[in-house]
């Protein structure tokens, strides 16, 4: 039997027909498949080798993180659409002072480092939780997502305004107005929906990555900070707080140990799963989102 007839090459041929002709040029879809496959493989591995309580915590943390990031997207879209429309109306009605005041406030928010703003908002949420003003997890998720969106939504506002300005300079805009279309329809349907939704979707993908990063970082900081001398109020588990957990920290420290003791590396995949899986999910998600966003931008030449 010739070597080229081996099972190995037949397998490669299958991958070639799937990947080579459809998936590889569309890198966003390819990375989406890679991300989902990677996460599923990791969950499968953890289901076998990680103890039940830790496995449950990992799934809850990942689920909560995804849920908050999804809520951030929803709030960001709503906030940015309202703000864009509001700014358009102010500019269109030549209310110069109103427009300048709103822009001034937006620029002020822009000058606040996102992490500081979100940290303050988290402390406020903790205060509310401590006083019993909020109790259910969903309320906490909504408030934290809102806090994150407040410091992210400006990127989407900038994009929407840029798109509106671009189309306003074209004949298209004046022609539609002459034809009797209302501003509401031109801006919201023809410009933002029909001609900019790909751009907005690309931005939304980046917002998702940003939301995961900021949320995990703040959760990590809060969990590490509060665990020192001040009594903590327990927020729902996320990847960030799970990473700040003492067991996870020990697991991650084991990476450093295995660098000088290579024989220990195999233990990382069995004994230190909680921390390593949490860190891997976080980093792999950030990388995949970045790649998906780039692939999407390349595919549509944005």
């Amino acid at each position: 039997m010739k070597i080229s007839d081996s099972i190995y090459l037949r397998g490669i041929n299958r991958i070639k027909s799937f990947w080579g002709h459809t998936l590889y040029p569309q890198k966003d879809k390819l990375w989406l498949v890679i991300w989902i496959t990677g996460i599923l493989l990791l969950i499968w591995w953890n289901a076998i080798f990680l103890n039940r309580p830790a496995f449950k915590r990992l799934l809850t943390g990942f689920g909560n993180t995804l849920f908050i990031a999804s809520l951030v997207i929803v709030f960001t879209l709503i906030l940015s659409w309202i703000m864009t429309w509001f700014l358009y109306v102010l500019r269109h009605q030549k209310k110069r002072w109103g427009f300048m005041s709103v822009t001034f406030v937006l620029n002020l928010i822009r000058s606040v480092p996102q992490i500081v703003g979100i940290l303050f908002a988290y402390v406020a949420v903790q205060g509310m939780l401590y006083r019993g003003m909020i109790s259910s997890d969903v309320n906490i998720f909504v408030l934290t997502a809102l806090a994150i969106s407040l410091f992210i939504f400006l990127e989407v506002v900038d994009l929407m305004q840029e798109r509106i300005r671009y189309f306003q300079n074209l004949d298209f805009y004046n022609a539609m107005r002459v034809c009797g279309f209302t501003d509401w329809r031109i801006i919201n349907f023809h410009i933002l929906w029909k001609n900019s939704r790909i751009h907005i979707l690309n931005k939304v993908i980046s917002v998702f990555g940003m939301a995961v990063f900021l949320q995990c970082s703040v959760d990590f900081i809060i969990s590490v900070g509060l665990s020192t001398q001040v009594s903590a109020v327990n927020l729902p588990t996320t990847l960030g707080s799970l990473l700040a957990n003492i067991d996870s920290k020990q697991d991650i420290l084991a990476i450093g140990y295995s660098l000088s003791h290579p024989g220990y590396i195999s233990n990382l995949f069995f004994k230190h799963l909680q921390g390593l899986s949490t860190a891997f999910i976080l980093v792999f998600t950030l990388l995949s989102v970045f790649k998906i966003s780039n692939g999407f931008a390349d595919r549509y030449r944005l």
Partner: peptide, 19 residues
Amino acid sequence: AYLFLFSPAYVIAYSIKTR
């Protein structure tokens, strides 16, 4: 290298804290 560049600072720092 990509994973390293995308890692939040605390993940990298804790990974090599003992070294």
